[in-house]
Design a binder for these strands. Structure first.
Lengths: 216, 216
DNA sequence: TAGATTGTTAATCGATTAACAATC
DNA sequence: TAGATTGTTAATCGATTAACAATC
């Protein structure tokens, strides 16, 4: 099975399956059927089986999937059997919060570098990590050989910073800045501007002062 | 045009178009073609025209779309011509960061309520807002008639808190907790656990200590 | 008018689901 | 063995793209 052939949308669902499987593990469950797992993550049983079948057969007819074995299998597929070092670029409110967030290290992502352009931040420590000067970014990235960057800079400089990150070897960017950041296709980018997500939700809500221009 | 018939995925793209259009507006651009807008947000020109056509015709043959008019049209479609009050539930690291984040209010989302279960937080102020007791959530939500909640509580209580939010009238949830939160179908939920997004990216990266179980 | 670009239809592409033989 | 559930194929469904008449 070739990595190229597997739809992105299948890969996107795997971490969610993993989340549910870990929950089952904590509850002491040994096996789970595609029907039950599907119920937990809100997808059909057929979809779960189809998604997994891209990578092989992990279940047993008649009983279902061994929870531990499926967890280990998905972790292997997603390359999660290692600690991934991460850089946070931009230590504003969001960047600081992510630095303090315990969830990353608990799940195998270690923030090993945080940088900013603000002189009053550079040299200070947050959660034990010293904030470095963004002007030393190239040197630091080349030394640490990082592949993953979390981008929490203002919109105005996001593309510029992203270009630099890519030229210094970054291969994956989690972008919180409110712009669509572009990069060569071998670089993977996920955009998660929270405002975009909220603006998506408001479409479905009742509004008090609707001033529509359309025929909705 | 019936709201039911429009694919969710179309609605998801509208805020991104808006983002790019606002950028064009700042640059002083008066009109833009579907080809150029598509280039900015990495979708085809045909898709932009198709997406917009669900709501009406906003362009002019020969020249393209008036930037200001299209911004106003999309804002109307997404119900953005009002300030949306929001509650943040759970004032840990992430919740605190979002409270301090300026991007929400700048884009029309005002955090009017923040609550937590931790007695040492309740009564303190962050960014001018007093943290309230989560035990008063029902009373506060009924009074403020909020429809949007940002969920930044630990995974273990996320579903429980979400159930309460729904029963108190919340209709949209932006969920940062690392679990798939379930709700009746008239309640809209977007999950944005950052770890899930990172786990998606690692699939595509080079790994040093691969221990695969599969045939990739 | 000539050139450009929309809005829309039909064709294509890809993802989801249903169904069931295989088999635990 | 009987019952259950997988893995996979084929059918269906839905989204994207190509093409072009309409028209600015």
């Amino acid at each position: 099975m070739n990595k190229q052939n597997i739809p992105d949308i299948v890969i996107q669902r795997l971490p969610i399956y993993l989340q549910a499987l870990n929950q089952l593990l904590r509850e002491g469950r040994g096996v789970v059927s595609s029907a039950e797992l599907g119920h937990l993550v809100m997808v059909t049983a057929a979809q779960i089986r189809k998604d997994l079948s891209y990578f092989g057969g992990f279940g047993k007819q008649g009983s279902g999937y061994n929870v531990i074995y499926l967890i280990e299998s998905i972790r292997a597929i997603l390359n999660l059997n290692q600690i991934w070092p991460v850089v946070i670029v931009g230590v504003g409110n969001l960047g600081q919060a992510l630095l303090r967030y315990q969830g990353f290290s608990r799940k195998g992502f270690e923030i090993v570098l945080a940088c900013d352009i603000n002189p009053s931040l550079i040299g200070t420590r947050i959660n034990g990590l010293e904030i470095s000067d963004i002007n030393n970014l190239e040197e630091n990235l080349r030394r640490l050989k990082l592949q993953i960057a979390v981008l929490t800079v203002p919109a105005a400089c996001a593309q510029n910073v992203a270009d630099k990150l890519v030229s210094y070897g970054i291969r994956a960017i989690l972008n919180y800045a409110p712009v669509v950041v572009k990069a060569p296709e071998q670089v993977h980018i996920i955009n998660i501007d929270p405002v975009v997500k909220l603006q998506n939700l408001t479409y479905y809500l009742d509004t008090k002062d609707y001033q529509g221009l359309d025929n909705k």
